[in-house]
Write a protein that binds this DNA or RNA. Sequence first.
DNA 1: CCCTTGGGTTCGGATTCCGAACCTTAGCTG
DNA 2: CAGCTAAGGTTCGGAATCCGAACCCAAGGG
Lengths: 151, 151
Amino acid sequence: MAHVKVADELCTVSLPAALLGERWTLLLLRQAFLGTRRFEDFQTSMDISRSVLTERLGTLVEEGILRREAYKDVRTRYEYRLTEKGLDLYPVLMALRKWGDRWMSPAEGPSFDLHHRTCGGDVGVHVACEGCGAELTARDVRVTPLRDSPA
Amino acid sequence: MAHVKVADELCTVSLPAALLGERWTLLLLRQAFLGTRRFEDFQTSMDISRSVLTERLGTLVEEGILRREAYKDVRTRYEYRLTEKGLDLYPVLMALRKWGDRWMSPAEGPSFDLHHRTCGGDVGVHVACEGCGAELTARDVRVTPLRDSPA
DNA sequence: CCCTTGGGTTCGGATTCCGAACCTTAGCTG
DNA sequence: CAGCTAAGGTTCGGAATCCGAACCCAAGGG
């Protein structure tokens, strides 16, 4: 497995990585998947500074991952909800959780459980071959650069 | 889906999120999975400053995700290799790539392809119920807090 | 014995982050 | 209707990070 050099701008890993690898963003998404929707709730649940929260929510809205929507409670409020694009990040968060469960779990175990709503089964994340169905690790996958690397 | 508040320190998503959601870390891991191993190669392929690279490699080694190893080329060199813990992050990176392919793909498409080494099939990432096998989205999953939230 | 290469460390300046205080709009209270 | 409060931000100044460039050092090679 030789060293493969790939232009950053063209890689479909590095683009999301640049976005999600920004401080707070992953935590913010975790909260969103847990059902947090309002500015104040994000702020208190994550203990993030208000100015940074404003900015992060803004970029996630710009990126189309969250949608800012006004609604009427007792008065007009705003909520940030996951768009389809945002909901589609679920496998990323689940993969992260699986890994965290295995490698960074505190002694008491995870702080919440996830189960299939209808049958109660555990949630699994699998990397598998679409052809033969085999479970895949990094070693089972061949990388083929599609464009010439710029060096 | 009510707002679920969970202590940050206890969550198996937020711990890895804090680590991977640090600038450069995800990109560094991407490079590692592509086969990059040496300090110089990381530096030039990601265009990261040397001081920050030193620090990031250091924390990943501390966390047991990379292992720093001396080896003899024409002289003694060092390489940073993924440990088992590191290799186990593969599903996270694959989930990220799948998402990037769908939502952030540049016009020319991804810059490299991945295929099952033995059968040539595409690589898939799936969140599925371990019980009934159904493919799951965020909406199909019930969240159950295991410890009392501190507020 | 000097040059190059890999793998860092050490600066100063530029960004980003943070906490605290402030602003604005609405409803609610007396 | 004057004043209070809550949500949802903005706007500071200081602290922590990041960056590029320069420097350091050990091991070969010529």
